[in-house]
Design a protein around this nucleic acid. Structure first.
Lengths: 195, 195
DNA sequence: CAGACACCAGCACGGTCGTGCTAATGTCGG
DNA sequence: CCGACATTAGCACGACCGTGCTGGTGTCTG
């Protein structure tokens, strides 16, 4: 039972790479099939619908994000060190991909903000979970630093803004100074909150 | 020669509205034709290609942005008042649209960041122009406030981050507190820079 | 008022889309 | 080694895509 799972995994991997460039709706079964050297119907047999494939791809992206960004940061000691790590790994996630394609969640959030359905629902759920992680990590840093009246939700908002514009300047405008500006902005944010 | 221009304008308007929801590639000539009560070929005759239509739509969006956001702000006296107006009009542009669809440039930047061609080129050009406006307005406010060593580019980066995440939380997460957070973040940004 | 021309509908084209059905191939446990 | 079953190819389908051509209908100009 391993042959089938293997090819299914390679399909999802390739679909994820393509989705980073053309979006999840833009991934085509025909094109995807030739990419993984399968017939269109052979590929389709692994998923009962295109939507199921899209959900599998999204799930794969969430898994990668969890193990690349979240988990390593949470393994660090609570406090500003963990917070800094979370930010830096988020920056790397957006800019360091060997395949040059950026953060897929940011692309998908624009693609699905007006497209109801299970894909959008799952995307919203994962975004909220990520916000929760940021909030808790920041809250921990604030407590360790002895800061009172810390507005965690506001911190999350500004944290994400830095990341979103990083993707914007890095991918659309091709500004090489993006990372530098992102780090500087985050330093401002930390200083402003005393953490 | 006014009948033709009128219908052409109504086509572009409708296409712009649809593009806000499904992107420029997602706008379909057939669907667009029925929306404006024209035959597909009748509509197509106004543009020699779909790409020409896309460029016309983008140009229309740029015009609206200029007259809704940029021009009114630039008519105000130089300084922090003008800067604040620019930000608030940007926030309104993202959230206040009667058609509930958000800022199309943010959607397009994700759609075309990996799709070379004239549409992407024009989009990049207009983004750079907007950044120039922010930079000059902020620089003016800094000079009026007597601030030295003002990092205008960094200010632009953080300004845009606030707007991008506003679109994100407003449209995807449907967070009603988005505007409030955006304004608070901008107040932080101004305070940090002393303007 | 008539001729020139802009405007638009009808129809057709090759392609590709997602999705099914059927049959041949492969893989694995007994 | 063989039978059960998972995996994949071939083929077909209706729908829609962007794009042309051709002819008719309106509209403005002289």
């Amino acid at each position: 039972m391993s042959k089938g799972s293997d090819t299914k995994q390679s399909i999802v991997d390739e679909a994820l790479n393509q989705a980073r460039r053309v979006g999840l709706e833009g991934v085509t079964l025909g094109e995807l099939a030739t990419s993984v050297q399968l017939s269109k119907s052979g590929l389709f047999a692994h998923f009962k619908s295109k939507e199921a494939l899209q959900l599998a791809v999204l799930e794969e992206a969430i898994d990668q994000f969890t193990s690349d960004v979240i988990a390593p940061s949470l393994s660090l000691p609570r406090g500003s060190e963990r917070l800094q790590s979370l930010f830096e790994r988020y920056v790397s996630w957006i800019t360091d991909k060997p395949w040059d394609a950026g953060c897929i969640f940011i692309s998908l959030s624009q693609e699905y903000d007006d497209r109801p359905g299970p894909v959008r629902d799952r995307l919203v759920e994962s975004e909220n979970q990520f916000q929760d992680v940021i909030r808790r990590v920041a809250q921990g840093a604030a407590e360790r630093a002895g800061v009172d009246s810390f507005d965690a939700d506001q911190f999350v908002y500004e944290f994400k803004g830095i990341g979103l514009n990083l993707q914007h300047v890095h991918r659309l405008l091709r500004d090489p100074k993006g990372c530098e500006r992102a780090h500087k902005a985050f330093a401002h944010l930390r200083a402003h909150n005393g953490i």
